[in-house]
Each structure stands twice: as C-alpha cells, then as structure tokens.
C-alpha cells in the first residue's frame, strides 16, 4: 500500500506539513487540526502520523472505520459517534478528535504534506511493512 514516511535527517522543523494538513482538511492554519505532528527531539525532529495498521477498526462500535481498497484506514463521517474509542486505543496516539464536528480525523496519506515539505523529509512510498519505522526512514 501507499503510505506516508518521514526522514528525520532531512527535517528542518519548518512544520509546513502540519499547516498544510490543517489547511487541506479543515481550512485553518491551527496545527492542532493536523494529522501529522512534528516534535523537536534531542537531535533534530520527529514526526508522528498514522501508519495504517488498522488496529482501531475493531475498537470502533459503529463500523465508522474501515480500510479502503488501497489499505488506507478511513473514517465514514456519517457513522462516527465521536466516542473516542479509537483515539484512546490507537497504540501510536495518532487518531485525533475535532470537537467542532465531533468527529475523529487521521492521516490518510493524501500526500499534500509531501508537496509542502521544503526539505523532502516526507515521501509517499509503496510498502506492506506498517510499523513506526515509517517515522524514521533513513536517507537512501
């Protein structure tokens, strides 16, 4: 499947990805509405975003979460009851909640952040290995 991956060695902390994500999906610049989160680390920066593992799907009581044909975990907005089950049970803390719409949101590997990144730290790649290795892709 095609998923997002992050190369910490290339990130300069501009955080254009967060702003772009929030703008793309919520039409705001508030990075709290971003599905990718950049944090400073001891050396450089780290990123967190959904790795499409799908563990949230069984936790959802309403079938609002599903894996699409491309393997991406998506939200059926009309079914989401805003119960936070997936938010609390996401092992990676990358399912978020929008109070205004009372809906969850997450990275669906749309690739807008990849285009926005000035240092090419983000990339959409084809892989079946869904793990947090995707947050620490090494330079080729």
């Amino acid at each position: 499947m095609k998923v997002l991956t992050f190369n910490p060695q290339r990130c300069d902390g501009t955080r254009a990805c967060e702003v772009t994500c929030a703008e793309t999906w919520f039409k705001v610049t508030d990075v709290a509405k971003s599905s990718i989160r950049i944090q400073p680390k001891e050396a450089g920066f780290g990123a967190q975003f959904c790795i499409q593992c799908g563990q949230c799907i069984d936790v959802c009581p309403t079938n609002a979460l599903f894996q699409d044909k491309q393997g991406i975990v998506r939200v059926r907005k009309q079914l989401c009851v805003g119960c936070l089950s997936c938010v609390g049970f996401c092992p990676y803390g990358v399912m978020y909640f929008d109070t205004a719409q009372t809906l969850v949101f997450k990275c669906i590997a749309c690739g807008q952040c990849v285009k926005a990144c000035p240092t090419q730290a983000l990339e959409i790649i084809e892989t079946d290995n869904v793990s947090t290795d995707l947050w620490e892709r090494k330079s080729r």
Binding site: V81, G82, L84, V87, G88, F97, T99, T102, L103
Partner: peptide, 19 residues
C-alpha cells in the same frame, strides 16, 4: 447518534477527560 446530541455546555472539557 452523534457525539454532541446532549448539546453539552463544554464539550472540550468532556473530550479531555474522555480521551
């Protein structure tokens, strides 16, 4: 069912403790 049918006074507060 939606997450705000009670029209609570402060949903942010509920979401904080709920999460």
């Amino acid at each position: 069912v939606k997450g705000n049918l009670n029209h609570p006074a402060d949903l942010e507060r509920i979401v904080r403790v709920g999460a």
